[in-house]
Design a protein around this nucleic acid. Structure first.
Length: 465
RNA sequence: GCCCCCAUCGUCUAGUGGACUAGGAUACUGGCCUCUCACGCCAGAGACACGGGUUCGAAUCCCGUUGGGGGCGCCA
């Protein structure tokens, strides 16, 4: 059975790059009917934080990337790593090293200055040191030969013989380093496919050395291209390195983020829009592009707009509710909310915008900008509004079609353009020059609320004069 | 500096030797629809990085150049 994993280190929030790696692992596992594991790589005690564990978990849950096992924590598995390390030590495949950090640092600096490779010089390699506090355990790289592996996406990748040095697998405090913990975990968790960013390509030879020393066949590797910022540089805080949860707060739909992320570096013919179900069905690692992909916030926004107007309104409503907390929306029925959402859906790109556009449905006393009143309600139109006021009692508010007809007739009778009348009414009813279709708005508000707003706006308009 | 990966419109991509006058999406421009704004529809502009090969024939295969990305920790 296929087993994949997503191994974030809880030293930051889940960002777009990490989310995409998680997504690809998830999709691959689901497509193959396999298992997807969540594992926190928190061997760095200094930088790992519980709050990041929580935020990563809630981001994954929000995106709908459900894991089948875990979360595991490397910090709780130290005895396992020590066990494996002990084995390597006893078999002579690893040795203890007493070189101090300062000494190593100095040697490295010197090598750099001379333009040479910064590798460990093997000072302690043959000292036969026994374990002792303050000593780190290094793996003993066997005889020099090149290291080759078959990447699922790129084919053979070859590293020259002297690329890997005797690196540390157990720190002097006994904790495992990343390279070692990953391998032990992937072995013990039965990982079959390692799908990760291509920034890990150069780590792979080190890990292969560990697999070999442990006498275990390595999993299959697929290195997917990284996600770059819009400027082609590494993802930074300004754009995509923001937490996924920030996108949630700004009014993005998980469907949109998943869809966008899937299309970043992967394609399925000319199809652009995919539900999670379709992705699971159609995802194929072989179709992943090899070139790094730039994150384009505008396209993500466009996808968000698409999914807002595409998913059923009943499904949209729960996503929107958190953005309505400043409105007394509890007073209104679910049916009413769904009705007004329908008309706003095609006009917005985020849930936040949606909430902003809906405000007039919830408040009776709108505030009107003086400029808008003057621009859209000139004296002539104001008089029309006054005369219209009586008609409102007999107009049929049952459906927008008949409302429209009634107002068309009225405009004709008054000798003004429907357009001008409509804009004045729009200001009166919504407080804005841009809104959902006017007659839909009227129908939703109902006769009494429409009357009250027109009456009030006439009064305010006269105060301005 | 050394090592590794990569290269189609601004961006994301389709394309796996002939179906390419290089398709779609997004963004942009013009038009249609229209009570505003959107949505939708139609149209336009916009790319095979460069140079050598291989081949009857290259966006597609090979080599080089250039460009971009990544790695070289007792970080992950």
């Amino acid at each position: 059975m296929v087993v994949t994993r997503f191994p974030p280190s809880p030293t930051g929030h889940l960002h777009l790059g990490g989310a995409r790696t998680a997504l690809f692992n998830y999709l691959f596992a689901r497509h193959q009917g396999g298992k997807f594991i969540l594992r926190f790589e928190d061997t760095d005690k200094e930088r790992s934080k519980e709050e990041y564990v929580e935020s990563i978990i809630s981001a994954l849950e929000w995106l709908g990337l459900k894991w089948d096992e875990g979360p595991y924590f490397q910090s709780k598995r130290f005895s396992l790593y020590q066990e494996y390390a002990q084995r390597l030590y006893e078999e002579g495949k690893a040795y203890y090293c007493e070189c101090s950090k300062e000494l190593l640092e100095a040697r490295k600096k010197e090598l750099q200055e001379r333009g040479l490779k910064t590798r460990y010089d093997g000072t302690c390699r043959d000292k036969n040191l026994s374990p002792a506090p303050g000593r780190a355990l290094r793996i003993k790289i066997p005889e020099i030969s090149e290291i080759i592996f078959d990447d699922l996406l790129r084919g053979k990748i070859v590293f020259p013989p002297d690329e890997v040095d005797d690196f540390i697998i157990l720190r002097s405090d006994g904790s495992p380093t990343y390279q070692f913990a990953v391998v032990v975990d992937d072995i013990t968790m039965g990982i079959t496919h390692v799908i990760r960013g291509d920034d890990h390509i150069s780590n792979t030879p080190k890990q292969l050395v560990i697999y070999r020393a442990l006498g275990v066949d390595p999993p299959l590797f697929a290195h997917i291209p990284m996600v770059l910022g819009p400027d082609g540089n590494r993802l930074s805080k300004r754009h995509g390195a923001r937490s996924i949860l920030e996108y949630k707060e700004e009014g993005y739909l998980p469907q949109a983020i998943i869809n966008y992320l899937a299309r970043l570096g992967w394609g399925y013919g000319d199809q652009e829009y995919f539900t999670m179900e379709e992705l699971i069905e159609k995802f194929d690692l072989q179709k992943v592009n090899l070139a790094p992909a730039r994150f384009d916030p505008e396209k993500l926004l466009a996808f968000n707009g698409y999914w807002i107007r595409t998913i059923p309104t009943e499904e949209l409503l729960p996503h929107l509710k958190p953005f309505l907390t400043n409105y007394p929306f509890q007073k209104y029925s679910e049916d009413y909310l769904i009705k007004i959402l329908e008309s706003i859906k095609p006009r917005v790109k985020t849930l936040k915008e949606m909430a902003e556009m809906m405000d007039f449905y919830f408040f009776e006393e709108l505030s009107y900008e003086k400029e808008l009143l003057e621009k859209y309600i000139p004296p002539k139109i104001k008089e029309v509004l006054k005369r219209l006021f009586q008609d409102l009692n007999i107009f049929n508010f049952e459906d927008e079609k008949s409302l429209e007809l009634q107002f068309r007739e009225l405009a004709e009778k008054e000798g003004i353009k429907l357009r001008d009348l409509a804009q004045a009414l729009r200001i009166a009813l919504t407080g804005k020059p841009i809104s959902p279709p006017l007659f839909e708005v009227m129908k939703c508000l109902g006769r009494e609320r429409v009357k009250a707003r027109i009456e009030r706006v006439i009064k305010l308009r006269e105060e301005v004069e």
